[in-house]
Simulated assay, not measured.
Amino acid sequence: MNSSKINYTGLVLEYDSGIVPPPYSHVFRLALDWSKGDLEAQLDLHYTEREELSEEEILDEGFTLQDDFSYKGKLNSIWIKPLQQMHDKTKWTNKDIEEGGISVTLTEKGKDLGLKIPSNQEEWQLMAQDLIQAIYETIKKEAPLKVSYRKVSSEDTIDCSLTVHFSNREVIFEKNGKSNPVNWEYAIQLMKMIFTPDYHYELAKEEAGKKRGEYIECGDGYWHELGKGVVNIDPSFDAVGKIKQGFEELLGE
Rank of each mutant, 00 (worst) to 15 (best):
L11F: 10
F28T: 07
H200R: 06
A134V: 11
P82H: 11
E206N: 13
Y215E: 08
G62T: 10
K74V: 08
D156N: 05
P197S: 07
Y8H: 15
Q42G: 14
G18D: 06
N7Y: 10
S4Q: 11
D16L: 09
L59R: 10
L190T: 09
D130I: 01
C218T: 15
H46Y: 02
Y47K: 13
M193L: 14
A239R: 08
Q85D: 15
K175L: 11
F195P: 05
D198G: 03
E55H: 13
D156I: 01
S153N: 06
V20N: 01
G229E: 00
T163E: 14
E249V: 15
E142W: 01
P144K: 05
G219S: 04
Q84V: 15
K228L: 08
D156T: 04
E137S: 02
A41R: 10
F63S: 01
D130L: 04
L226V: 05
D33S: 12
R29G: 02
M193C: 13
E61Y: 02
W223R: 04
Y15G: 06
Q245R: 13
D238F: 02
K140R: 13
A187K: 02
G10I: 03
G114K: 11
P23I: 02
D96Q: 01
W92V: 09
L126E: 14
H200E: 03
I243G: 05
L126V: 14
W184D: 03
S17Q: 14
P21R: 11
P197Y: 11
D44I: 08
I80K: 04
K72G: 09
D238H: 06
V104Y: 10
K81D: 14
